[in-house]
């Protein structure tokens, strides 16, 4: 489904060059739940950003359903992110002043869906994560676990082909972590592809495939 070929990312810091990704080749098939693990700074978040078209690689290619997606225009990439990718972050990126419902609606607003339809889709997404009763609550007033469930709902709302999750439980306690991972697991069971970055071995147990990264390379999986 999504494939990267010999992906390299080099950052320049003055005269020094930092190699964040050193020739990564990876293929994720439709319906897989893949976890990328590794120590902090090994390049796993950078890889996720490349695959999510948030950042550009220095060299290499990214294929989506066998088509290169690096050469498409910025606008097309934006539409691609909107329609086909769902994102979940450790730091949530929710507007605290917006209600949970409004936050979930953001990708639908960007894709130009009408208000009534938008509201219905957001309600369904909130229901899928068990947050339908908290839709009117401002995101700032939610607990960490609830915020992450709102993020999952937002990632789901456009029915994406793949969900990219960057340490989704990084700032949650064990109870909320379990809850969030179970929700992700259920979503995976519905056929959604998930690519998750984590350093937690426990979270990685929910995945169907585990990959280990070290110094910008895949060392296992």
């Amino acid at each position: 489904m999504i494939k990267c070929v010999d992906l390299k990312k080099v950052y320049s810091e003055g005269n020094n060059q930092v190699i964040a990704l050193n020739g990564i080749s990876l293929s994720v098939e439709k319906g897989e739940f893949v976890v990328i693990r590794g120590k902090s700074g090994c390049g796993k978040s950078t890889l996720l950003n490349m695959l999510g078209l948030i950042d550009k690689p220095t060299s290499g290619d990214i294929l989506f359903e066998e088509n290169s997606i690096l050469s498409i225009s910025e606008k097309e990439k934006a539409r691609f992110r909107n329609k086909r990718i769902g994102y979940i972050f450790q730091s949530f990126y929710l507007d605290p002043a917006y209600s949970a419902m409004q936050n979930v609606e953001i990708p639908l607003v960007i894709s130009g869906i009408q208000r009534d339809v938008r509201r219905q889709m957001a309600e369904e997404a909130l229901k899928a994560v068990g947050m339908d009763s908290r839709g009117r609550t401002p995101a700032g007033a939610l607990s960490g676990g609830e915020k992450q469930r709102i993020c999952i709902a937002r990632a789901l709302v456009n029915n994406p082909d793949i969900i990219l999750a960057d340490e989704p439980c990084g700032s949650l306690d064990s109870q909320n972590t379990k809850q969030v991972m179970e929700i992700l697991s259920k979503i995976h069971e519905t056929g959604v592809t998930i690519l998750m970055v984590t350093h937690s071995e426990e979270d990685a147990r929910y995945a169907s495939r585990r990959i280990l990264m070290e110094d910008g390379r895949i060392t296992e999986g």
Partner: peptide, 19 residues
């Protein structure tokens, strides 16, 4: 203060840098 957060939200939810 909300700009960075909004940048991330809009970027990941489907807006281009130009937009």
């Amino acid at each position: 203060s909300r700009r960075k957060m909004w940048h991330a939200i809009l970027m990941t939810q489907g807006m281009s840098r130009g937009e």
